[in-house]
Design a protein around this nucleic acid. Sequence first.
DNA 1: GTGTTTTATTAAACTAGTTTATTTTTTTCG
DNA 2: CGAAAAAAATAAACTAGTTTAATAAAACAC
Lengths: 191, 191
Amino acid sequence: MEDFSLLYSYFEKIGNRELTDTEKEEIVSVFRKETFNKKQRIFNAGDENTRHYYIEKGLLRMYIIDQSGKEFNLLFGKERQWLGDLSTPATTSYYLEAVEKTTVFSISESAFASIMSKYTELSANIRRSYIFLQKRFVAILSKTAEENYEELLNNDPDLVQRLPQYHISSYLGVTPVFLSKIIAKRARKKD
Amino acid sequence: MEDFSLLYSYFEKIGNRELTDTEKEEIVSVFRKETFNKKQRIFNAGDENTRHYYIEKGLLRMYIIDQSGKEFNLLFGKERQWLGDLSTPATTSYYLEAVEKTTVFSISESAFASIMSKYTELSANIRRSYIFLQKRFVAILSKTAEENYEELLNNDPDLVQRLPQYHISSYLGVTPVFLSKIIAKRARKKD
DNA sequence: GTGTTTTATTAAACTAGTTTATTTTTTTCG
DNA sequence: CGAAAAAAATAAACTAGTTTAATAAAACAC
């Protein structure tokens, strides 16, 4: 029998109460537990009706590939975070891929919508995602890549540990070459 | 007596039904009709508990001022659009200002939250805002300022008409000088 | 372990976009 | 209308970040 305990405790937390057995059964019936290997693709640009993912363990990245074939990481998701394309069920423009071996609980859009009416905290979560993206947008627009790297280091040091450098550079909107320069410069400063 | 008809028809549209008299009264009781003159500030960075605005007529911009004092326009809102800082009631980092003389229906966060439970379309609206911002983010990151200007011209020609050029440049993340160059270049190309 | 592939560094020439300053055009308003 | 203020254009010198290419270091696989 698969272990859904992390998912239960998530809903208990946002519902601010214990779940009944019936509720647990409902959760098991609408979520699918899945595992993805490192570099395994979860969905591709062009796919329709992509699912929502609540991450149990591991690390995912959502990205685009632009006209010139260059990748841009939009978002990373790790333990106890949601990730997915909110424009589903419409055709997605994004790719979702595992950076590490990752296990998730996935749910369809329709089940997600219905569960959202029960746990209103879930829509508050979408709102928080919006706020997060807005901050990130402002930061990329108004700050230098060095400042943004610095900030990422402060806010999410373990992400910087776990991700190869070229994924971070693409998240910051610069080339790996330039990020490498920034890091070299910072190292020089330090002493 | 103030005219709330645009607001009624908005709720009738998203609720997909006619409003009862009681519902109309409720709307009048929670919304406040306000008018702002050109360049009038609606809220400032640092303000708490900012309101949400549904625009009847006119044009607003939401922007930040960065460390160096430079403005960045995040969003414009015009007729029949919502605008506001979703992180309310927390302290806002944004400024909201009228670009033209503008009339709005404004609502507090608490009333907004309660009305949201009645008209679930409103949370779908937040989700759409997220999707819009995500697209904009990708565009700014992965395309040149010229491509982004081109796209704005196609998607929102009347915005380009109604806004001074320096507001558009700040929306595209470039200086007014550079946008002016882009426009000159485009004009040269055309013939 | 050592050979292969992946990731990171460095250098040099380049470009998209900035800055500052001056001039021209357009808008505002008494 | 005419004067003053606001917005846009142009030019020139500059810089943050890119590109390409070559080298070095780490991680992976058998």
